[in-house]
Amino acid sequence: MSNAATYSDNYLSDWHQQAVTLQNNINQTILGQENIIELMVLAIFCRGHILLEGDVGVGKTTLLRAAAESLGGDFERIEGTIDLMPHDLVYYTHISSDGKPAVSEGPLLKHGEDLSIFFFNEINRARPQVHSLLLRVMAERSVTAFNKTFHFPHLQVFADRNRIEKDETFELPAAARDRFMMELHIKQPKAEAQLKELMFNTRYYDADKLVDSADKAVLPFNQLNDIATAIQSQIHASDAVQDYAYHLCQALRRPQDYNIQISDVDSEKLVLGGMGPRGISYLARCARANAWLKQRNNVIPEDFHAVIRAISKHRIFLNPVYNYNGEAIIEELISGVLNTIPSP
């Protein structure tokens, strides 16, 4: 099948310009998160859901709001709380203007197919029942209510959680985490100038004003699915790069087969699971999108390097023995894999 005929020559390059505009727009609002923003843009153009994690007050919510406002389309936000139940997302009951009890569509349904961003704040405060509903919404972009199925073709879920508090929170199940294309760990900027800017520039004092100051809807959100499809079909992945990506994924699952050694860790027993078919597919998709964002027509190993941490970190499940130092070990494992697997 030749997809080249489907899209005009300038289609990808025109969209590339829009992607850069989107990236710049968010960068103007959020300071010192260029790499995170680039990864978010990649996820947007792969139509993947994003989970932001980080310390308190580093700007997770502001970043997601800025991204949502920049994308355009209908936007819905909900706060995760311990008493939130699935039906709170689907409908709400109230007394109508004529004084009679009424049932109306909830935040998830009321925008219909125009829902572009569903922003779930503090997702780990919601109960597993809500996570369960979210699983379907993320995987199938649909939900069944009032005896019919609602579809959200343009839906992208942005969620965040803070990693400091563990009280009254519910750990996301592995299946839910796997449905997020990326889990981004947001840290505060380290550069002195940026920190001073955040401290003393009054522009950053009011988050609402800051988000409002950015351009809105810089992209036609309802065409994102098409451009995402075009990117995947137009960007070439050679046999050599496919081999490379395959071995990367295999090495993440079975480091012992590639002689990857981590200090004080038994490679044979390190990894219990991770990087399943959804994960490796996301990795390939993001690598293609990265190649497109870098204005290349073909994928190179560096495209995988750019996205592998955001995509694989939350998909690797270690033997519980190593959980005490899990993050550092996973980081070391990924570095070991990148340094070991040769390309070509």
């Binding site: 050599a240 190179i300 190993p301 560096e302 390097h305 990148l338 070991t340």
Partner: peptide
């Protein structure tokens, strides 16, 4: 030619003591 390129890549990897990429 692919094999020749791979041979040179292997030399770089050996000298760098890791897989060496353009960046």
């Amino acid at each position: 030619f692919s094999q020749a390129l791979q041979a040179v890549h292997r030399a770089f990897n050996r000298r760098a003591k890791q897989a060496l990429f353009a960046h």
